[in-house]
Design a protein around this nucleic acid. Structure first.
Lengths: 142, 142
DNA sequence: CCTTCCTGTAATAATTTTTGTTACAAGAGG
DNA sequence: CCTCTTGTAACAAAAATTATTACAGGAAGG
């Protein structure tokens, strides 16, 4: 009924990293190469790899060089990827913005909830931190 | 830059439940009353209270009766509210839908990731289960 | 029993996000 | 200098979220 999902940019980014690791000795990895594996437009890939590059996760240059990983897989957690592509600056929860300040509940609901919501988000992100790209890549190679 | 937030329906639903608890002895609680505290259109309120009703969390009748809670606050967890308003049937994560089956990575990425993503979601939902509406309401009354 | 109030619900609009696409300048390397 | 590919803008399409109007139909009060 309702959607509420974390962008596919996250799983695409994971797919990209695993692909670079998997194929880097066999092929020159380009955005077209990755687009063929992920099956999306190459520009989508480029936008994501720019974000991964900006946090020092991969190396890219223009021209025929192809891209490489800048870190070993076991030094990249799902959280690293998540924060690289999705900008988790803010809250995972969307708060209704104008509760009535003249109502005792409306005035305090934010304070009453914020701490709990932040704690939930922290738990979620800690779990993301506990899984590395190596864990994922190993399951691919089986 | 990107949004990715759980619908405000969740925090609105919490607001609603706390309001009913807080005001039920003083006032007749209607969707207009709640709309004034939350500061959204009454129809938004009605759609949410219907969902809360459908899982047996509140009692509603047409006419002048007003609505009441069907459960004590400490028997309602944030997860109960979350699942009532947001239909968490599916995954919290949006997977890109057509990875290339002819690519060894594309063919296996789903299997390799699904278990981990499900575990992350489970952790998240368990945390939601650990907080009750009583915890929230108590902070309002301070 | 009839008037009033409020829910339940459809229909629709306005925003905001997300994803996809085309196009092209500019850097890198052969 | 030619070719390949990134980096990026501009724009289009699709999907999701939130808001709004309107009204039929129970429930309660007089």
């Amino acid at each position: 009924m309702f959607k509420i999902q974390i962008s596919s940019r996250f799983t695409i980014a994971i797919h990209i990293i695993v692909c670079i690791d998997y194929f880097h000795e066999q092929f020159t990895i380009t955005s077209d190469f990755l687009a063929a594996s992920v099956k999306v437009n190459p520009v989508i890939i480029r936008r994501i790899i720019l974000q991964l590059k900006s946090v020092g996760m991969i190396n890219i240059t223009r021209g025929r060089s192809g891209m490489t990983l800048a870190k070993p897989l076991d030094k990249i957690t799902l959280y690293d990827v998540y924060s690289a592509v999705d900008c988790v600056n803010g809250s995972l929860f969307h708060f209704h913005e104008n509760p009535n300040p003249d109502c005792p509940v409306g005035k305090n609901i934010h304070n009453a909830l914020d701490e709990s919501l932040a704690e939930i988000q922290r738990t979620f992100e800690d779990k993301l931190r506990s899984i590395t790209l190596r864990d994922v890549a190993e399951k691919i190679k089986l």
